[in-house]
Structure formats: C-alpha cells, structure tokens
Amino acid sequence: MFASLFLGTVHIPPGKVLAVLGWDFQSVDGYIVNGIRLPRVLGALVGGAALAVAGALYQILLRNPLADPYVLGIANAAIFFYGLAFLVGIQVGLPALAGQGIYVSSSVLGAAIVSALLLALSARYGALYVLLFGVALGFVFGAGTQILIALADVMKVGAFVLATLGTFSGVTWDRLLAMSVVCLPALAAALALSLYISPYVLGEEHAAVTGLDVRAARVLVVAVASVLTAMVIAYVGVVGFVGLVGPHISRLLLGTESPQRLVPTSALTGGMVTLAADDMARSLLPPLELPITAVTSLVGVPVLIWLLTRRHVQG
C-alpha cells in the first residue's frame, strides 16, 4: 500500500513523497501525493474490498462461483439511469445526492430500484429465481441503454461511454469520505452477516434445517451486497473482475468456502488486487492511464490461474 504512493503518471522521487506525505497540500508535489494519490489509494482499498465482499456474498447466495457484484443487473440499471440523465436529459432526482453529480445520483437510484425489486423477489422465491430475475433485469436495463445510445447523437455517446468507465482517479477526499461513510458500515454489516449466513454454504434446504432463516439471509445478502456495489458504481464506476476474482483468491488461499472466513479475507484480497491494479494502471505506460478493468484482469487472472493449477497439482 505504501508503495502505491510512489507510483503515478507524474514521477516524484520517493524521498520527496515521504517528505510531503500527510501535511503538504500546497506544493504541486505535495498536492499530488496528499490530494490525489492518498485518497485514490484508500479509495482503491475501500472500493476493492467492497466489490470483493459483494462478490463473495453473491457467490455464497447464488452458490455460483461465476457470480460477481454485477450479476444481478445493478450496474446495468445504474448505467441506464445515468444514460437517461446524460443522453436524454431526463434526470430523475435524488436531491440529497445532487451535489455529487448526476453519475452518483443516477447510479444510486438505479441500484436502489433493482435492489428493491430483487429484495421483494428474494423474500418470496429461492436464490435461483433471484439470479434469473436479476440477470433478466440486467438485460432489460442493458437493452434500455442500447436504445438510449441508438437515439442519442454520436458526440454524446462518446462522452457517455467515457463517463461510464470505472476508474479510481476520480476519488477525492470528499468522495472517499462519502463512499466510506456508507461502505465501511456496510462492510462491517457484511462481516456480521457472514456469521449469520454460515450454514448457507450447505445449500438452502440444509441451511434451513440447520436453523438459518433462509429468507432473511437472502434479503440481507442482497441488501448489503447491493449497497456495496451501488456505492462503488456511483463513486468509481464499473470496475470488473475484482468482485469475481477476489473471493476466489481468498477461497483458494484459505481452502475454505465458509462465509465467516471468506468475507473478511475477500475484503483484504479485493482491496489488494484493486490497489495493485490501480498502481499498474497509472504507472505502466506514463503518462497514459490504462482502464482499471483491463488491469484488474491482468493482475487477477494470473494469480487465479496459478492458484487453481497449484490446487489441482496438490489435489
């Protein structure tokens, strides 16, 4: 984490970084370290943790190792509402978030609508139905976005696509604070939830006879994972792969799928993978900054493959 402060599109000597770290917001180098890199590094840690925990929760809920935070269509809904605001000019207001820009307010709204639908469904139907409904909703909103793009003019579409790419370079202290105020309690809730849903790994019926209130578990998991996902989409955008690969790395490293171990360690692996990916995104080809999703895959996939093959050899 410390090393991340030395990396960036602008080269600052390590000694200088240490000299200004923590206090200097005035000089150019100081501002770059304290005003840009520090919140960005913390943002990558919090955002990565949130994504990986959301991914772990969904993987447990859906008993599907391919589930990720976007599997239930939340990202598509967020992008759709952003597109509605940006491309068509229909801004569905969330006054409380108005100061954070239309991306944040649209994303939160989109995620809230999808989550509310899914929560209502998850209380009544099994996890498989939640998955099917979630994926279907994702397609609906994805199609809606396609229509918006088709109707909009090319200039706007270009800007729209750029604005929907996930990146941590937009994380300022203010936004880190806003994101953390929701994400950190949600992460704590996820840790508590991981104890509550521990029998879920056995499958819903085994879990039910072991004493788990399966409906409550479904609702809580969807709620907490949605909040985490929505926050990251709102403040960072869609960052792929962390939510998928973080829990897998934890699972393979720890050799367990029990939620109470998987959830906290996913927070760690997710944060670390994301931070490493963000470091690479801004330091591999300066002054070019690579899209974070491309780099998360570059970092995450080799680790995942190595762990998978190692396990295979042992097994």
Binding site: G8, I36, L288
Partner: peptide, 29 residues
Amino acid sequence: DVPYVSGIELVVKRGNDTDVLVYASSPEF
C-alpha cells in the same frame, strides 16, 4: 505528449503552467 488518456496527476503537475483551459464540452453537458 499525452496520447489521449491520462491521469489527473499530470493536470495538477502542469497546473501552474496552464494559462488557458479549453474544457472540451458545451454548456448543455
């Protein structure tokens, strides 16, 4: 020297050299 996409760090680094900024957008967006 910037191939299209870069990070905010560079903007800050060159901040004091920047006399005029044309922000490539229009009042609508």
